[in-house]
Design a protein around this nucleic acid. Structure first.
Lengths: 342, 342
DNA sequence: TGTTATGCTGTAATCGATTACAGTAATGGA
DNA sequence: TCCATTACTGTAATCGATTACAGCATAACA
């Protein structure tokens, strides 16, 4: 009964108006008269018309979608941020594209291509390791302010960013342990190249110093935020002659991997070793011992990032590339930490 | 130095050829002569030309992207499937759009709109609860075969699907427990409306029957696949006068929530109660007790779904709407199950 | 030499919307 | 009555690529 695809022409014909009027009715209803509006809308539903995005995009030079670059899509940590992002953009009638940076080489690929190709109107980077040169390719273009960081970032690149208050989080963790009487505190960090690793490590040293605690080289374990690396850290920990009585892990997953191995070695947590994580993943309260950790509101980070980008999209002028939104974190005390008994 | 945007005209001029030749060089290099090809490619890199997608999409009536509908983006389970999907599509030069069905109402929204709008060339449904009417709106259209299920599905809807071998997984779990001597086995299920719940529950009854085991109404706990619902099930479990000695949970998360609460109540796992999960999430081996569970290869499901859709996209004719790919599962024995001692 | 095939290239129509500009009718004010 | 303004509406150009069709050499063959 209907033609293959119904286009604006068909609606115009059905409503007895021009295509311009149909278009106006749909995108700016107030400028057409009551009666034509009704006629057009009727024709639209009668024909089942739907605006063709490609045509609109070509004409308006917009895409109606934004791109999210994630270092590891399989990681639940990021999926929750994306969830927050999607929530905001779906309301605003934007589509969300996701790409795993592990599946592409960004080395030679300037981010400006995303805009030139008409792939997306904006980009949210969850990956602090996207090459500086790639990001800077948008500097000086009209899209300069449409790339922002969420969660991770790079100190070399000046674009807006949303992040947790990592420094405060580490302080909370260390002070919590110090308050419990621990003086020998170890640290499981993320991978060296990660910006979060740097901040949290530095904050760790600083917080320890503030409490007058000494840190031994031996007590620092480099991981990669994932479970297995926490388990590896535990092996090294167990091999130490003179062990710390508490450990601050830069991620919950590493903390859990660490604890698992300690328990297997019959080391009591928190009896002999207290452990604080970072993230407060859903499982933290259900792990045994329940994990004391620093709560990050991941979905909120995603939402704020999306809202920030959205406002840049609607009013490009008043964007500050140095904009930085820091989301507060909090300590959640659970069962994996206890008083120092030595 | 360069114009705002360089278009195919500019390249044509620079190379001294027509736009048609430029287009051909880029999309079908073999039909142009060696010398022009070189000239064009030089002009392309000299000008920094990039094909405008909106224009191409309009002309070719394709979008180069596919849509993934997820019931809960924040759930790590789905993010790993998406990871597999993205891996395949990024190689094939497709973009992946993700939408959380929780953020949209699909009730009145026919899926055919996705195609009419030119939003995507194909759809992967990770959500078995997308309304039948919405999906069936593509039946009889040219896009009939470009919507497929991954992981979940609906028995009412005839479209290709990729899924784990749920039935076999449940059998493995029940037989494992029966082999350990358990005769009183409980089950924590997903939510009633979920298709996986139905299959796994039915398979549970069947497997139990095959082993000559009786199942009491009291031993069935309805959850929602998430942690907290496992903990709730544990409360009900603890209130029972006559408890099962083993429990099969339809998800690892529920199993962990369940175990946590049992441990808090000083019930030994697996000493007093054995627990088998389903999924084999990354944490399963690090939980204490390490979780015995049914391994599902989520990334593989994603990859196969993507490859299936991809082949439908390239050769639409030979698609079978009844196509069903069942991915094998396996039992992973860990510490949460042990011999029945009663 | 004439005819046909082959290989490459250019012209121009086309995809389906948006929107600048112009035109018309109705209204109000002088 | 005439002019200006307001409120709509229509015409047609435009976004930037792809591709059907036609044209022109050159090669191949009779």
């Amino acid at each position: 009964m209907a033609r293959e695809t119904v286009k604006i022409q068909d609606v115009a014909r059905a409503a007895g108006v021009s295509t311009a009027t149909v278009s106006r009715t749909l995108s700016n209803p107030t400028v057409v008269s009551e009666s034509t509006r009704k006629a057009v809308l009727e024709a639209v539903s009668a024909t089942g018309y739907r605006v063709n995005r490609a045509a609109r995009n070509l004409r308006t030079q917009r895409t109606g979608s934004i791109l999210t670059l994630v270092p590891d899509l399989g990681n639940p940590f990021f999926s929750q941020i994306i969830s927050g992002i999607e929530q905001v953009f779906s309301k605003a009638e934007y589509s969300v594209l996701v790409s795993d940076t592990a599946n592409m080489s960004l080395e030679g690929m300037p981010l400006s291509h995303v805009f030139q190709d008409g792939q997306a109107d904006g980009v949210i980077l969850l990956d602090g390791l996207v090459p500086k040169s790639s990001i800077n390719s948008v500097k000086g273009t009209p899209n300069e302010n449409l790339v922002i960081y969420a969660c991770e970032w790079s100190d070399d690149v000046v674009i807006p960013s949303i992040r947790s208050d990592n420094w405060a989080g580490v302080e909370l963790a260390v002070n919590h342990l110090a308050d419990l009487g621990h003086t020998r505190i170890g640290h499981i960090s993320g991978p060296d190249e990660n910006v979060l690793t740097k901040v949290r490590r530095e904050a760790f040293f600083e917080a320890a110093k503030m409490r007058g605690l000494e840190i031994h080289e031996d007590w620092l374990f480099e991981g990669n935020f994932k479970l297995a690396s926490g388990a590896v850290a535990a092996e090294k920990f167990l091999a130490l002659k003179h062990r710390p009585t508490a450990v601050f892990s830069a991620s919950d997953l590493m903390a859990m991997g660490f604890i698992s191995n300690l328990l297997d070695a019959n080391i009591n947590v928190p009896g002999e070793v207290s452990v604080v994580g970072f993230d407060d993943i859903d499982l933290a309260p259900y792990f045994r011992p329940a994990l004391t950790t620093i709560h990050q509101d991941r979905r909120r980070i995603g939402r704020i990032a999306a809202e920030t980008l959205l406002s840049c999209l609607s009013t490009p002028q008043n964007t500050d590339s140095k904009f930085r939104h820091v989301v507060p974190v909090e300590l959640v005390e659970r069962g994996s930490t206890g008083p120092c008994k030595q």
